[in-house]
Computed example of a mutant assay.
Amino acid sequence: MARLEHLNLTVSDADAFAALLGDLFDWTVRWSGPVLGGAGRSVHVGGPDDYLALYTPGAGVGTAPDSYVTPGALNHIGVVVDDIAQAESRVREAGFTPHNHADYEPGRRFYFDGPDGVEIEVVAYD
């Protein structure tokens, strides 16, 4: 059986994005440093078994097309939490607006648009 270990995502500020995810989800930075011969910086944030590799190119980021119509684009990141009310409170306190709340089989969810327009889905399973 295979499992997903990490995703690599280009962001405008890898350190700030990692700090936010740490505050919201109690994730930790597993590694950070220069990459691609010093042409960029990466921060790995998550848990002991899986993480997001947040990459900031040295030359800065450009603008991206709509992910929902671009092949290969990231549409959202899904994060499972134990306490969805607490997670939503943290998201609001961080200045983001939760939306698209839903109760569905087998749990509950909401979304919010994080830094760089990255949509994050937060879900709790019953």
Rank of each mutant, 00 (worst) to 15 (best):
H101V: 00
G60Y: 02
E93R: 14
G78M: 05
S89K: 12
D116P: 05
V45M: 04
E121K: 11
P57T: 01
E88G: 06
D66E: 15
G37A: 06
A94D: 09
D83P: 02
L74K: 02
P115R: 03
V91L: 11
N75S: 13
H101W: 05
R108D: 00
G117A: 08
G60C: 01
D82I: 02
R109P: 00
P34R: 15
D103S: 07
R90I: 10
F112C: 03
D83W: 09
P48A: 14
D49A: 13
Y125Q: 12
H44C: 10
A85R: 11
L74Q: 02
G114P: 09
L74G: 01
V79G: 00
E93I: 04
P65C: 05
S42I: 09
S42L: 13
R90K: 15
P115E: 10
D103K: 01
L54D: 08
A64R: 14
L54V: 05
V80C: 09
E119W: 05
H99P: 00
E121M: 08
V29H: 04
G37M: 05
R109Q: 09
V118I: 14
N75V: 13
A59K: 09
T70C: 02
N100H: 11
I77Q: 08
R92Y: 04
A64W: 12
A124T: 15
S42D: 07
W31M: 08
P106M: 08
L36C: 11
L74I: 11
V79K: 07
G40A: 11
V69P: 03
Y111P: 00
F96R: 05
S42R: 12
V122G: 02
G62E: 00
A59M: 08
H99S: 12
T63V: 13
A94R: 04
A53L: 05
V29G: 04
G114W: 01
H99C: 07
G114Q: 02
S89T: 11
V81C: 03
D50F: 06
P115D: 08
V80Q: 13
E93H: 11
G117H: 09
A64Q: 11
G46H: 03
D126W: 14
G38Y: 05
Y104E: 02
G47D: 10
T97G: 13
R92I: 10
G72I: 08
R108Q: 04
G72F: 07
F96A: 05
S42F: 01
S67W: 11
F112T: 03
D126E: 15
Y55V: 14
S67F: 10
P71W: 09
A102S: 07
